[in-house]
């Protein structure tokens, strides 16, 4: 065998090894969770009231956070996609910040704003409303961290809609709002939906900011990621069961996004 052939074979072997190590590195940890728990233990753990309430609470809070994100985020996403205004880049950078910010910083910032002595929290405290360590605080944290993901995606989706369709609708007698609902949203639909799914996924996985502003109270603020952390010491099986639920949810979310983006292209 010539030395050139040996070199080629060696290169292929190294290349394959790197590929295998990479795949194993990202899948083995997740698989090891699966092997650590029997199906019976999984079912028993899921039926535990604390575990159960964590799943329900996660779905409810992430669902509500997603609704708030869509209501708050859609207008600004549309504005940024369609209109050039002074300071737009600055506004966009500010809105992107929570994506790269460590969640603990986000949590601390929310705590300082909504805490009893905070700017808004202090005022609310005077009229008898507490936000910190409530279910609402969980939603607040999720909106703060997940909102920018939706806004980004929605902006791109709106920007991709050719304005000529909006113009056509206007000349046919539709006002700006009707045009938005009947033409812009349907044409941006696939992008908007993947933004919604991304936002929901980020919300359901939220941990750092939540534990700082909402604490880890079972049934009230203990969402799945918090329950996994909380139960790790006392009931590893429950933690693993919850993790598997989250892994399955994440898989479903990824498949949904792939299906949607595949359909649009």
């Amino acid at each position: 065998m010539s030395s050139k052939k040996i070199k080629t074979k060696f290169a292929i072997a190294i290349f394959s090894l790197i590929i295998i190590i990479t795949i194993l590195f990202f899948t083995l940890p997740l698989l090891s969770l699966l092997f650590r728990i029997s199906p019976e233990d999984f079912v028993t753990a899921i039926l535990d009231p604390d575990v159960n309430s964590a799943i329900v609470l996660s779905l409810i809070t992430a669902g509500m956070a997603t609704v708030i994100i869509v209501l708050l985020g859609t207008p600004i996403a549309y504005l940024n996609a369609r209109h050039e205004y002074r300071g737009r880049n600055f506004v966009e950078t500010l809105l992107d910040l929570p994506i790269v910010l460590p969640p603990s910083v986000a949590g601390l910032a929310l705590l300082v704003l909504f805490g009893r002595r905070g700017l808004i929290g202090g005022f609310l405290d005077d009229i008898g409303i507490t936000i910190i360590f409530t279910t609402f605080a969980v939603i607040l944290a999720q909106v703060f961290v997940a909102g920018p993901l939706y806004i980004r995606q929605a902006k791109t989706a709106f920007a991709m809609v050719d304005q000529v369709y909006e113009s056509a609708a206007r000349t046919l007698g539709a006002g700006p709002f009707v045009t938005f609902v009947k033409v812009t949203i349907p044409l941006a639909w696939t992008g908007l939906v993947s933004g919604i799914i991304l936002g929901f996924a980020r919300g359901i996985g939220e941990f750092g900011a939540t534990i700082m502003v909402a604490g880890n109270l079972p049934g009230k603020t203990q969402t799945m990621p918090l329950a996994i952390y909380g139960m790790m010491q006392s009931d590893l099986t429950a933690s693993i069961a919850l993790s598997l639920v989250l892994i399955v949810m994440s898989c479903i979310i990824l498949i949904l996004i792939r299906m949607i983006s595949g359909r649009s292209s």
Binding site: V164, Y165, A168, T171, L172, P186, L187
Partner: peptide, 14 residues
């Protein structure tokens, strides 16, 4: 109340 035929027609694709 106008009728506008756009270049490339701008028919609503959805």
């Amino acid at each position: 109340n106008i009728g506008y035929v756009f270049q490339n027609y701008a028919l609503f694709p959805h």
